[in-house]
């Protein structure tokens, strides 16, 4: 009858993997998304595996890349100087304060929300997702293919370069209808767009809207979102040029 029928808090990654191997189990990171979702789910009870004891909440620098543990809270990411101003800003924009103190980097990536400005920021920072089995995959691939049942343990990014976000929303702190996030690199700008596809996508800065087929909803029609994607891309590229 209950929506969440068991709670597990493994003390090792191996134990977590073992628990996850059984059906009807899901990962619990911060809980801001999965707790309400699971509680509102009818009849099909779920068991949650809380990763808080696995010491995945560290941020470390290695060979020019910054590794964000999957359980790093967005509130911490928003204030960590090593992540850079853009990632700080996007972590803050992602959620309001109390939710930000709870939500995690891994949970944000796993949610693959098409509206996530933080995911856009991670994309343009060349994010690589590290899994429990040692595999590493680009964030773009994870967004398109999913995690396939693997546990995200970290996300590494290239923290260099400056970046910017340009967004359109109903209000200044609204979840953007469309946002364009760009970062300057030695090889030219990198650009990602939210709200214009089934997931956040990194696009070719020279043709930012090529192939985009935005969904429509009450906040913006497909055609409007496509116009926004084009306009905001031009602006953000100008800002980082």
């Amino acid at each position: 009858m209950s929506s969440i029928v068991a709670y597990h808090r493994p003390n090792s990654l191996g134990e977590a993997v073992e628990l996850l191997a059984q059906s009807g189990r899901s990962i619990l990171a911060g809980g801001t998304a999965i707790v309400p979702e699971a509680r509102s789910r009818r009849a099909d009870g779920v068991e949650l595996i809380d990763l808080q004891a696995l010491q995945l909440d560290g941020i470390s620098e290695t060979e020019g890349r910054l590794t964000l543990g999957a359980m790093v809270r967005l509130g911490d990411l928003a204030t960590d100087d090593r992540a850079g101003e853009l990632i700080n800003d996007l972590a803050r924009r992602e959620l309001p304060s109390a939710m930000r103190n709870q939500a995690t980097v891994g949970g944000t990536v796993a949610s693959a929300s098409p509206d996530s400005v933080l995911i856009a920021g991670l994309l343009v920072h060349d994010a690589q997702v590290e899994f429990h089995d040692g595999r590493t995959s680009s964030l773009s691939r994870v967004l398109s293919d999913g995690t396939n049942g693997a546990i995200i343990v970290a996300v590494s990014i290239d923290p260099t370069g400056s970046g910017s976000i340009v967004a359109t929303g109903r209000t200044p702190a609204d979840l953007p209808i469309v946002a364009a996030v760009a970062r300057s690199t030695d090889g030219g700008p990198r650009l990602a767009i939210t709200g214009a596809s089934a997931t956040v996508v990194e696009v070719d800065p020279s043709e930012p809207t090529a192939g985009l087929e935005p969904p429509s909803d009450f906040r913006g029609s497909s055609g409007y979102r496509l116009e926004l994607a084009d306009t905001l891309s031009q602006r953000v590229l100008k800002a980082v040029s």
Binding site: L28, T32, V35, D50, M99, Q102
Partner: peptide, 10 residues
């Protein structure tokens, strides 16, 4: 933190 989206077990 918000207690409506946090399990007591957490």
């Amino acid at each position: 933190v918000n207690t409506d989206v946090m399990l007591a077990a957490q």
